Lab assay of single mutants.
Amino acid sequence: ATNIVGKVKWYNSTKNFGFIEQDNGGKDVFVHKSAVDAAGLHSLEEGQDVIFDLEEKQGKAYAVNLRIK
């Protein structure tokens, strides 16, 4: 899925991951530091509006192509 809109539920910059809540009511999506770095960001803030693509690997969904809304 592409261009999914959501809000950062939480992001832990020490542990380098967090979760994004989808605006469409879907399951929360894992986001890793690598996606944050690829977006040219240092971190994510709770409540921040983002747009992302959804990829699945080994049955787990995660956010890629992250951008600030």
Rank of each mutant, 00 (worst) to 15 (best):
K9I: 08
Y62W: 12
Q22I: 14
G18Y: 02
K60V: 11
W10Y: 06
I68V: 09
V36S: 02
L66Y: 00
F19V: 07
V8D: 00
A35C: 04
Y11G: 01
F19D: 00
E56A: 09
D23Y: 15
N16F: 07
G18R: 00
E21Q: 09
G6N: 01
V8F: 03
K60E: 08
V8A: 02
S34R: 07
G26K: 15
Q58F: 07
F30M: 04
R67D: 05
Y11I: 03
G40R: 12
D53F: 03
F52G: 01
G18A: 02
Y62L: 06
G59S: 11
G25V: 06
E21H: 15
G59Q: 10
E55H: 07
L54P: 01
N65I: 03
A1T: 09
A35W: 06
N3P: 05
E45P: 13
A35Q: 06
I51D: 04
G26F: 09
N65V: 03
D53Y: 04
A38H: 09
G40N: 11
G6D: 00
D49A: 10
I68G: 07
N24H: 11
E56H: 13
K69H: 12
K57S: 15
V50Q: 00
Y11K: 01
F30T: 02
D49Y: 14
R67K: 10
N65W: 03
V8R: 00
A35I: 08
S43R: 06
G59M: 11
S34P: 03
N16A: 11
Q48T: 14
A35M: 09
I51A: 05
V36M: 10
K33L: 05
V8T: 03
H32F: 06
K15C: 04
A1N: 14
S43N: 15
D23G: 12
G18C: 02
A35S: 11
R67E: 06
G59F: 12
G25Q: 10
H42T: 13
N12K: 10
H42D: 12
L44D: 01
L54R: 13
N24C: 04
Q58N: 12
D49L: 10
N24S: 13
D53L: 03
V29C: 04
K60A: 14
V36Q: 02
G6R: 01
A1V: 07
L54K: 14
E45A: 11
Y62V: 05
L54W: 10
S34Y: 15
E55F: 15
L41V: 11
K15V: 12
N3K: 11
S13C: 04
G26M: 15
G40S: 10
A38W: 12
G6E: 00
L41R: 11
N65P: 00
Q48M: 09
G6L: 01
K27M: 07
E56D: 07
D49W: 13
E55R: 15
T2R: 15
I51V: 08
H32S: 08
Y11D: 01
R67L: 08
V8C: 03
G18W: 02
A61K: 15
F30G: 02
N12V: 06
D53V: 03
V50A: 05
A61L: 15
K27N: 10
G47C: 03
Y11N: 01
S43Y: 13
A39E: 03
A39S: 07
V36K: 04
F30D: 01
D53W: 05
K57Y: 11
E45G: 12
I4D: 02
N65Y: 09
K69M: 11
I4L: 12
L41G: 04
D49F: 15
D28R: 06
Y62N: 11
L41A: 06
Y62P: 01
G18M: 02
W10P: 00
A38F: 11
L66E: 00
D23T: 12
A61V: 14
A35N: 05
I20M: 05
E21K: 13
G25L: 13
I51F: 11
K69G: 08
I20W: 00
N3E: 06
E46Q: 14
D49P: 12
V64Q: 06
H32Y: 08
G6S: 02
D28T: 06
E21Y: 10
D23M: 13
R67Y: 06
L66N: 00
A63H: 00
D28Y: 06
K9D: 01
S13K: 11
D23H: 12
H32D: 05
I20K: 00
E45W: 06
V64F: 10
A1Y: 06
L41C: 03
K57T: 15
G47R: 11
F52M: 06
Q58G: 07
V50Y: 04
L66K: 00
W10G: 02
D28N: 06
I20H: 00
A35Y: 09
K33G: 11
A63D: 00
K15L: 11
R67A: 04
K7P: 02
K27Q: 15
F17C: 03
K15R: 11
G26Q: 11
